Simulated scan of single mutants.
Amino acid sequence: MTINHKIIMKEVQDYVVITLGLFLYAFGFTFFLMPYEIVTGGVSGIAAIVEYASGFPNQYTYFLINLALLVIALKILGLKFLMKTIYAIIVLTFLLGLMKELVPRDESGEMVKILGEGQNFMSLIIGCMMTGSALGIVFLNNGSTGGSDIIAASVNKYYNMSLGTVLFILDFMIVGSCLFIPQFGDMLDRTHMVVFGFCTMLIENFMLDYIYNRRRSSVQFLIFSEKWQEIANAIGTRMDHGVTILDGHGWYSGKERKVLCILAKKNESTDMFRLIKMIDPHAFVSQSAVIGVFGEGFDAIKVKTPNNTNIDPTAPKTPKLKTT
């Protein structure tokens, strides 16, 4: 019963945080990017391009394109991911429409440029920082805003390629398409739009990777203490963490001592330090960032293995013979 309660609370927390992330995305996109007709990537970028060129509301284009992509999410990412994706698509469609009603407009009905005329690049920076951070928040809580996010999450599931890299490739093609749309003016105007679009890609994907990887980053602890046994027991039982005990030898003291080696998520660092200090305030602790941790409890190893089952990975590599 307690486990079910925790699962329900975790799901509720995911949906609440996803909703906040979607609100931030809709606000940044509508208030800072659309009034300046700044192009972005993804399905929301395609929807914006359609609205700039034809006037067809972007929220409807966004919704229709995502309907076609939900089948991919169901097959590759599973029903749990699909439910949150459907939720995000519906909520974001509603929020995009709502924000367009709330954004200030002038006498002619055009969206007011919040930062004033000539502030296109500053508005781009602010807007993309919001949308990129929002995407990172949504992904961290097992959600997706649909569209190219589905493709990025699918690739990230099987390959060790960052979400930002996948989205960058997709967005490059979407933004580049503006060069071939005559409704955006002459070639110089279209070139300006594409250049600004590439800037949105860089800022948005940087923020996405920064938010997403900061939460997932890991650290390594080396703990030197006379009370190593008590610390190991406390970490193993209270924090449900594995502990590796290494044999050490002090150069100055000449004494044998035990060293605790622990790999943990970065957001667990405060709890780890608090627990160590409660047991031994004089413990010597080394904390270092690690590039990646793969295995049980951390990230999966996402590399391809040979299909030939007869290959012995422990056998020495056969040297290649050079011919002259």
Rank of each mutant, 00 (worst) to 15 (best):
S218E: 09
N213E: 08
R216K: 15
F206A: 13
R238D: 13
V219N: 08
I223H: 06
Q229G: 06
Q229P: 00
R215T: 14
E230I: 02
I203P: 06
G236S: 11
D209W: 13
T237P: 02
E204D: 10
V219W: 00
F224D: 00
I223L: 08
R214C: 07
N213D: 09
I235R: 07
E230R: 08
T200Q: 13
R214H: 12
F224R: 01
L202V: 11
F224S: 05
A232K: 13
F206S: 14
S218V: 14
F206T: 09
W228V: 01
N205M: 11
E204H: 06
N213I: 02
N233T: 09
I235C: 07
S218T: 13
F224C: 01
V219K: 13
N213C: 00
R215N: 12
I203H: 06
S225N: 04
V219G: 08
E226Y: 05
M201K: 05
S225Q: 00
I211E: 01
A232I: 07
S225D: 00
S218R: 12
M207H: 04
W228F: 10
F221N: 02
T200L: 11
N205R: 09
T200P: 11
F221A: 04
N233E: 13
I231Q: 11
S218C: 15
Q220L: 11
L222Y: 13
Y212R: 03
N233H: 14
A234S: 13
I203Y: 05
I231W: 00
Q220T: 10
